[in-house]
Simulated assay, not measured.
Amino acid sequence: MSSSSNTYRITIVGAGIIGLTTACTLLKEYATNENLQLTIISEKFTPETTGDISAGYWEPYGLKTIDERILRWAGYTYNIFLSEFFSIKASCSGIMKVSSYRLYGFNGQNKDNNINNTEKPKFSKLVRHFRLLDQHELETFDHLKPTSGFVMSSIVVEVSKYLPQLLRFLSQDNRVKFIKKKIHSLIELKDQADVIINCTGLASRYLVGDQTVRPARGQVIRVYAPWIKSAYSFDTDEGVGYAIPQSDRVVLGGTFQLNDWNTKVDENDTRKILRMCAKALPALEQIHSGRVDVGLRPYRDDGVRLEHEKTIDGINVIHCYGHSGAGVTVSWGCAKDVVDIVKTLLPPNSKRQDNLPEHEQLWRLIPNFKYIILRAKI
């Protein structure tokens, strides 16, 4: 521990949505600890993170199994995002509540006949307005000829807007320090922190030698399609496609290519994504271009690693990585569990009683003074 029993030195490695939600949760729980020293170290900050590329759609996705732990994290996060949508944060932070359709099967057949797609997914109990589609509703998508499907209220978080707001909130606290740097080994931080929180995603493959972490390459296209107001995910003869609206664009996807380290645009993937999406939403046939982004999801064979480790070097490390395509979906829930572990190692002072809603306790919207001054001059 630190030389002073009142000073807690906590370092977070990684500044994606997992790292920053963890930082915000720490500030809530240690609100009355004036001697908290929170350092966030990352090779990349927004808009260069993997999350900035993602569609930011809430649904447990890309995970080998969805267990009770995942459901607990996802449910907690869903409720935070939903409350933020019904708050002043929605516009600045890029939070949208959307109807979301999932369609199974194509041309009247299921690719995997062993899957019963008339059953509700495990996460159905977490969301609002979930229901299976009846035959009449399925006929609306008769050009796809799906065999079954459901609709629910989901959340889309524009990560490229959300992360800057979290950063601005964190930067207002003089206990928080940011360092842009690549960490090659946690031993570099041994004498600089009492607790290290590893939120490095795919980089954990090298930082802590976890060879079960590998890339799941994702390529998406951001297009101008203002008539699309709901999210759609659907089966086609070429794979699963999706269309997810954001504030001024629609994200079309996608790919989930395990063990593919290629971060360059693949034109074959671009054409395939456009073909798939046009099969579900024919008006997209007129779309021939858009901004194409590529990111590498941090897939882990054994699922998310969230646990405390005391290394042979005597370092207290809390790992939180391997979220695959569900980083946004489980972010606040994982942050809560990480901070609960930190509290067992570094007990905080008595928590400040606050009558604010939960999401306002986690982080507050900080005014953009440059924007305010600009408007004043207009």
Rank of each mutant, 00 (worst) to 15 (best):
V151F: 06
F150L: 07
L202D: 05
V151N: 10
Y162H: 13
L252V: 00
S204H: 08
G201P: 03
L166W: 02
V195C: 12
Q246L: 08
Y162Q: 14
W227M: 10
V208R: 03
I179E: 11
T236V: 06
I244H: 14
A193G: 08
K264I: 06
V250R: 03
K182I: 00
N198K: 04
R217K: 08
P245E: 05
I187P: 04
V265L: 15
D191A: 15
F256K: 01
I221S: 15
V251N: 01
R205W: 05
E188V: 02
L258C: 02
K181E: 10
V151R: 15
K264N: 12
L186W: 00
K177N: 07
D191S: 15
Q246M: 09
L252M: 00
E238D: 09
D269N: 12
R249H: 08
L166A: 04
G254S: 01
P245Y: 02
T263S: 09
V251Y: 01
S230H: 15
L163G: 09
G241W: 05
L166I: 02
I273K: 11
K177S: 08
I196W: 03
I197W: 03
D260W: 04
S233V: 14
T236F: 10
E267K: 02
T255Q: 04
D237V: 07
R275W: 15
R168K: 06
D173C: 11
E267V: 00
T263C: 11
I196E: 10
D194K: 03
T270I: 13
S160V: 06
F178H: 13
E238N: 11
R217H: 06
I179S: 07
R249L: 05
F234I: 02
A216R: 10
I228E: 06
Q246E: 11
R205N: 07
W261P: 02
P215N: 11
K264S: 13
K177A: 10
F178P: 14
L258N: 01
R275V: 12
D194T: 04
V208P: 07
N268T: 13
D266P: 08
Y162L: 12
Q172H: 09
Q219N: 13
